[in-house]
Amino acid sequence: MNPYVKKDSTTGHIQVENLRVFFGRNSSAVEAVSDVSMQVKPGEFVSIIGPSGCGKSTLLNVVAGFVQPSTGTVTVDGKPTDKPGADRGMVFQQYSLFPWLTVRKNVEFGLKQQGMDNSHRAQAARTLLGLAGLLAFENHYPEQLSGGMKQRVGIVRALATSPQVLLMDEPFGALDAQTRVVMQQILTNMWQRFRISVLFITHDIDESIFLSDRVYVMTARPGKIKAEIPIPLPRPRTPEMASTPEYLAIKTKLRNLISEESLKAMGGELKDSGLAGFDIEVGPQGVAELI
């Protein structure tokens, strides 16, 4: 009945092998991503977490097809990701709805590119908006929506073309804490319905634990994979789980891993800006508060 919930879970395999990305040319080139190998299996929810500027967004942009690998290969279901396409849905950190289109027309955009006719488009968009609890707002313009609703429409729009994978670049970063928790639950819901693979970028440890099957921790620039942490918490996950020993153990592990890197990143930035002589007396706990 609904074409969106029948998707099988054999497609949507992201494979990154020995990826390096340099920005700039020759001597002034900056290495953003250094020898990263990772994967997202079909139907899996994987987060990448790391200090700011570690190249996690660059990694995502390579999968999306906006950035070309300098060396190494990145494939989705065996196909190199050399240009953007509707097989990889993307949700951006900034609000990226087209302000001149109503909510429904935004969702229809991808289907229109595929040449689907007007009435089928409208029907598909309304189905999806209904699933996300947004049907009442189909004729509103994005400016009339709250931040959380805009991002929800963004997710629905990315899902409309039935992509194999969903790429999310800190999509809830601009939202307040309460809205973010609600959005995480909605996203989990959508993910389980659609059985789609998700690659999720975040700098929020709780967010990565709550959402993911696995979390990759990246190092400070140049970004490498420092650790791969499975999150074996049962689903559906609830906010109450945050006080269980299992949750806290994972959280401590992740926090320690990231604190080291944030310290390194900050040290690196200080050195770059000519303040190298200063010793910074920040313990891991202090830095953890910052990220």
């Binding site: 999306a64 240009k83 509707a86 990889r88 955009f109 991808g110 729009r157 073309t161």
Partner: peptide, 9 residues
């Protein structure tokens, strides 16, 4: 970028 991701030529 959003337009490209949604398959616009």
């Amino acid at each position: 970028r959003a337009g490209r991701c949604l398959g616009a030529n």
